[in-house]
Design a binder for these strands. Structure first.
Lengths: 212, 212
DNA sequence: AATAATACGGAATATCGATTCCGTTTGTCA
DNA sequence: TGACAAACGGAATCGATATTCCGTATTATT
């Protein structure tokens, strides 16, 4: 049917392809179609964030003020829609990290960043689903995030470690896993508003250079 | 149909009821039925642990060497079967904790316990599903675990804190959330065998009484 | 051993939600 | 403004599973 579906087994380059595809494609869309595409993405973001992957396409369509068919014309699959939504979020996270790389105090930058990501993502089921790779089998998304996020994280971490504020025996993978875990831990503690702070505190303290 | 379905909104006493129900009920079963019931629970445990809630009932039935109908006669719902499986696991966790309450070194007992639970549960998707309460909406299970586990955890924690080995600004809820998160963090890091150790280490260090 | 009471297996059914299809509507362009 | 292409909406289709049902087989009871 369509061209752009090489469905590469490895997802390394997929995120690049996908956004390129999306962007270029949008230019040749009729104005109403462009508007709808954005609406769909917005609706999808809020619903995925609030309820995770289980929301029905129909619901997203309705909230976006379009029919199901329109959703499918833009995103041939629920999974692809999800990917598109996550791509956006990922983009923000990465840019966010990049803006901190030149910060004066590497340690502060590092802790500031992971705290920010965790607090920001705590209420976002879409992000958690994407990070934890659970539900649906979206290897592409997962590794897309992995690669980009991992890179900036690695930089922030390395600087923080060199400055002596973060223990040296861990790597970017640990951080990534810990962020996912913390995110999910916080979700699990839904209710007690005070828990998140304590949990983040424990994690950060555990990451600091140990006294011994 | 059956009697024992008060479907209490609050799950406080549910776990007790359920296991009582299960046990007493079993006594009046025909011998072959008793055997099948156990087989089903065993099969369900291994499948749920390995693949989470998504396994098909048919698969569990087949592995247990019985027909689908037999599974349903014992557990009217997939959810109830899952609950029964989790109840067992929970039981073990609680007993495990209780056996450590009188340990000489409260701090050691505490860290030993959470480490053990996490390492033991790392490969168990059923436990993670139960703890994180994701997928299916099993409030009963979740709160059942919450209550029992929370109680023993609270005891272990209190003693560890009194002995000065664990920071005083956190509670059992934090621990529970952290355990869930760590479990999921480890799942996410599948692959790198070295990550789990590092992650657990970070958490434990973060929980220790801080030097400052 | 015969009968009743229980359990069993698994085909048939029910449900739920993603995805397809096509007649209708709207935007673009001459 | 008229004609054509591009989009639209949403009913109908498809697929996957949980769950029901009932004729058969097994265990318990006499």
């Amino acid at each position: 049917m369509n061209e752009n579906h090489t469905n590469t087994p490895m997802g390394s380059s997929l995120s690049q392809n996908a956004s390129t595809f999306d962007t270029e494609r949008a230019k040749s869309l009729r104005v109403d179609a462009q508007r709808n595409r954005v609406r769909i993405l917005d609706a999808a973001l809020s619903f995925f964030a609030a309820e995770g992957l289980s929301v029905r396409i129909e619901e997203i369509a309705h909230h976006a003020g379009v029919g199901i068919g329109t959703v499918y014309r833009n995103f041939p699959t629920k999974e692809l829609l999800f990917e598109a939504v996550i791509q956006r979020y990922q983009q923000k996270l990465v840019e966010d990290a990049e803006s901190l790389i030149d910060h004066d105090d590497p340690g502060e930058a590092f802790f500031h960043y992971i705290t920010r990501v965790i607090e920001g993502g705590a209420a976002n089921k879409a992000l958690k689903a994407a990070l934890s790779g659970s539900e649906i089998d979206m290897k592409a998304v997962a590794s897309g995030i992995s690669n980009n996020l991992r890179d900036v994280l690695a930089k922030l971490l390395a600087r923080a470690q060199q400055s002596g504020s973060v223990r040296a025996d861990i790597g970017a993978d640990h951080i990534k896993a810990l962020m996912v875990g913390t995110l999910l831990a916080i979700e699990h503690s839904a209710g007690e508003a005070s828990l998140p702070t304590g949990i983040i505190s424990v994690i950060c303290d555990g990451l600091r250079t140990q006294p011994s």
